[in-house]
Write a protein that binds this DNA or RNA. Structure first.
Lengths: 173, 173
DNA sequence: CGAGACTAGTTGACAAGTCTCCTAGTCCCG
DNA sequence: CGGGACTAGGAGACTTGTCAACTAGTCTCG
């Protein structure tokens, strides 16, 4: 459901093929959603099925011709309906925090290593976000403004994460 | 996999029935994981199946006798193995941020409402975490210390979220 | 005593997400 | 020319998580 609406939203920004969408999910959109390509193609097929999107085959230089999907009028209606609907409350889920919570039986060293690995992941995330930020044009339209705000959201949370890791590490041994 | 290890970890703190676990997932552990009761009972059965936990029926005052599960030695081994294993990288996933990213076609009012609903959810979360914090005993053992650190993690992120919501709202109209 | 609420545990169906492998075609390089 | 890497698209099996309904017993209160 959510994935189908996100795809619809991306198609509303520009028509795209499945492979294009996969690239979006791996880069610009990665800080709040991601998707397996199998899932993307299936969802795309379902959207066309429901007449929320349409396909046109674009013969190109590469292998199977890419299939450009574009949002239909019905699709736009469905998209706005979702955007404006009740928030789906989503459970917090963080396996790393779970490990820390349960780390009683782990040695200090092992806990330290855990923290370091998380820090590495967070720094990677930070770098990825900063790259996107650096390559982003200054926001002119409201749409661009909102998209930048979500980047800022990601950055703030990664930084909070890094700060938290620092304090945990300090208090450790 | 992760759920089964978390349950194992909780059983390592104290033997518990399925209903007890459900209560944990709804309260103390809620800020980083949650689980449906169907899932809990099924996972518990699997753990017993793999000899990582054992059951004893505790006849009690209420309806079906509760089944106390306790972690076995093999279970402790499996738990530590998981705690100390490579971090499972988990994709960020936040449907709310997705909506903001795609909110171009929404009216200013609608975006404002979205923000307000998120703020309400965040404040609720904050209250829940503060309640747990207030009722928590000061950490004496390292285990308690680590558990408090995860609470702090939750609090920091909710506060970051609220700050972000403020700045987004300011820049809005 | 009997109705209704509550309890622990259980089942089935389903939706969402992941992993592995496959087809066909193009491109590059030795 | 032939092999290997890469591309877009896709099928299948499997795991996780969610939802709804059900059993069977206890407790409370009119």
């Amino acid at each position: 459901m959510i994935l189908s609406r996100i795809i619809l939203g991306l198609l509303a920004i520009a028509p795209m093929s499945g492979a294009d969408l996969k690239r979006q999910f791996d880069t610009t959109v990665n800080h709040f959603w991601s998707a397996d390509k199998a899932q993307i193609y299936r969802t795309l097929a379902a959207l066309v099925d429901e007449r929320l999107a349409s396909v046109t085959v674009v013969p190109g230089t590469t292998a199977p011709d890419s299939q450009e999907h574009r949002i239909t009028d019905a699709g736009r209606v469905a998209l706005v309906a979702w955007l404006d609907s009740e928030l789906d409350r989503q459970p917090e889920r963080d396996a790393f925090i779970a490990r820390i919570f349960l780390a009683e039986s782990l040695s200090d060293d092992a806990v330290g290593r855990l923290i370091e690995r998380r820090r590495a992941a967070a720094l990677e995330q930070l770098a990825a976000l900063e790259t996107i930020e650096a390559s982003a044009a200054p926001a002119r339209t409201r749409g661009e403004h909102l998209r930048l705000a979500t980047l800022d959201h990601g950055l703030r949370h990664v930084r909070t994460e890094l700060e938290w890791l620092d304090t945990v590490e300090e208090q450790l041994p």
